[in-house]
């Protein structure tokens, strides 16, 4: 109760600060993300070993948002992304395709069958001999096991099913593998992360490693972590998948983007996910 009051007080301050000169929107670095008053998520932790020469500490994008936006993710009844996750659970249970199967036909109850998966994706698929994102795995199941049409990589249905699956890992630490068979893809992703693109000549690192915490116009630059994806953005009022966000960022460097589902974005997703190893999966997060 006291906590709620202090959140409100902060929200008022944050709004007032937003119109002031400079970066008054800096949220409390020690704010705690507790969903529904019970699920405590790690939003700040030591950087994984592979990242230690770049940054000491990794932060969820949640910490960079204004207090009012932060509060929306702390209550599932207020987070609009939860409606998409619910729709995704219905899709998971719905029979589709020539084989008369649903996801549940093979994987069982989503809470059991999908538990922990978001935390380890993208991951190596031995049979296919490739790194797969969750979206790729969903479509492979649909095509080869269900005899159903694949979803478009970036689409309402895909966003919903990925939201539903991610929610089953909420609170678990991101833990993608970066060595063994994925090492080459990870290295490609790292290279892309540090490669400048576009007429504005910016890399991911230009903003999200060199300048996180700084304001860029009215935006508070985060570390660009993807542990919260899929994310419901107030900005476009829908679920946003990782590759869609990557595309938007690359576009904003005034560049010719890569396509969602491309080998470049798969590699970049693996690398960026690994920069967040140790942060909690936030299931369906909420950002501006």
């Amino acid at each position: 109760m006291t906590k709620l009051k202090s959140i409100r007080a902060f929200a008022v301050l944050a709004v007032a600060g937003g119109v002031a000169f400079g970066g008054a929107a800096q949220a409390d670095e020690n704010a705690e993300l507790i969903v529904n008053g019970e699920i405590k998520l790690v939003t700040k932790t030591a950087a994984p070993d592979h990242l230690k020469d770049a940054v000491d500490t990794i932060y969820s994008g949640w910490l960079f948002r204004e207090t009012g936006t932060q509060a929306m993710q702390m209550d599932d009844f207020v987070n609009p992304g939860m409606l998409d996750a619910e729709a995704g659970i219905e899709l998971y249970n719905a029979v589709d395709g020539t084989e008369g199967k649903s996801c549940a036909s093979c994987h069982g109850d989503i809470a059991e069958g999908m538990k922990g998966l978001r935390a380890v994706y993208p991951k190596w698929n031995e049979a296919a001999g490739e790194v797969r994102t969750m979206e790729m795995q969903v479509n492979d199941c649909r095509e080869t096991r269900m005899g159903a049409e694949p979803y478009k990589y970036i689409s309402r249905e895909m966003g919903q099913i990925v939201s539903a699956v991610s929610l089953q890992s909420r609170g678990e630490p991101v833990n993608v593998a970066i060595d063994g068979p994925v090492a080459a893809t990870w290295a490609q992703g790292k290279e892309l992360y540090y490669t400048r693109t576009g007429i504005l000549d910016l890399s991911c690192a230009s903003c999200h490693e060199e300048n996180y915490g700084n304001m860029i116009r009215a935006d508070h630059l985060s570390q660009g972590q993807i542990n919260g994806f899929p994310v419901y953005r107030l900005n476009n009022a829908k679920i946003n998948q990782v590759h869609d966000r990557f595309k938007g960022c690359v576009r904003d460097t005034r560049a010719e983007t890569y396509n969602p589902g491309s080998s470049e974005f798969i590699a970049l997703e693996l690398y960026v996910a690994s920069r967040g190893n140790g942060l909690s999966v936030e299931g369906v997060s909420l950002r501006n």
Partner: peptide
């Protein structure tokens, strides 16, 4: 430039 774009369209 690397992958110069057409304004903010995301196209070449």
């Amino acid at each position: 430039f690397n992958r110069a774009g057409d304004g903010y369209t995301g196209k070449a």
